[in-house]
């Protein structure tokens, strides 16, 4: 049994079908990438899992139990943390407060102080910035704070929506290194990324969404070598090796 099982998920946004029957799995301790063009339904999928959008039909099971219609709060309690697109940290709270509140769902279990230490070990930059207002952080630091905040909930599965968007190449490296360390700590990651090559390099498996449907799936390597994927998302043809235009 997979950690997360999504079956024939259909979601409408503003009356228009955004997901037209999406099926995929995420296993324990696995990084799975969800790829596709803008509007393909990647973010909608993550929002449906976190109960920010209610599905029209279909099933989402986590750890064997259905979580369709289960409130965002209970979804976090069950072990799914969500790093939204654009980090969405609370700008007028300090970094430490942002992190502390990340443990809200599990505040009566275990020790938040120990978790905070673990997050600081993984993301030492946050320890330096702990007392600072989160609104004063750089883009990369905000993303780290958002990841740290999500990890404070001790998740089994981390949903990440475009974590490298708008960051400088060096910071993007840090983000991807962090994702690998998170997996090493035993947390599964469902990754939505526009940086297709980097995502496929670290993902065990990947799914390609198009118009609200899964049109391709396979291991990260398979999709990296797939000529159509290369054509569509990397803007170059397999074997040609020449850089294309846009991504």
């Amino acid at each position: 049994m997979s950690l997360l099982e999504v079956r024939d998920l259909k979601v409408r946004r503003g009356g228009v079908p955004a997901l037209r029957g999406v099926t995929f799995d995420v296993d324990r301790r696995e990084v799975v990438a969800l790829l596709g063009a803008n509007g393909a339904g990647k973010t909608t999928t993550l929002r449906a899992i976190s109960d920010l959008s209610r599905p029209e039909s279909g099933e989402i099971r986590f750890d064997g139990r259905s979580i369709v219609g289960v409130s965002s709060t209970r979804v976090v309690e069950a072990g799914i943390a969500h790093v939204p697109e654009g980090s969405r940290i609370w700008p007028e709270m300090t970094v430490a407060e942002n992190l502390r509140l990340g443990a809200y769902a599990v505040r009566r279990k275990g020790s938040p102080a120990e978790r905070l230490d673990a997050v600081f070990r993984l993301l030492p930059r946050l320890a330096e910035r702990a007392g600072q207002l989160a609104g004063t952080l750089s883009g990369g630091e905000r993303q780290m704070a958002a990841i740290g905040r999500a990890l404070m909930a001790s998740p089994k599965l981390l949903l990440m929506d475009e974590p490298s968007l708008g960051l400088s190449p060096r910071v993007v490296d840090t983000v991807f290194d962090t994702i690998q360390e998170i997996r090493r700590d035993g947390v599964a990651v469902l990754l939505v990324e526009q940086n297709v090559v980097r995502a496929l390099e670290i993902a065990e498996r990947a799914y390609v969404l198009e118009g609200g449907r899964i049109v391709r799936q396979g291991s990260g390597e398979e999709l990296l070598d797939d000529p159509e994927v290369r054509q569509a998302y990397l803007g170059r043809t397999a074997g040609a090796g020449s850089p294309g235009t846009g991504d």
């Binding site: 976190s50 920010l52 965002s72 709060t73 976090v76 309690e77 943390a81 969500h82 939204p84 969405r88 940290i89 609370w90 700008p91 007028e92 709270m93 407060e97 502390r100 509140l101 990340g102 809200y104 769902a105 599990v106 905040r149 999500a150 909930a153």
Partner: peptide, 17 residues
Amino acid sequence: LALRAVAQDREAAALSG
């Protein structure tokens, strides 16, 4: 903390439980 978080970004607060 929860009050301040909801005031600053409601959806992010929901996503943090």
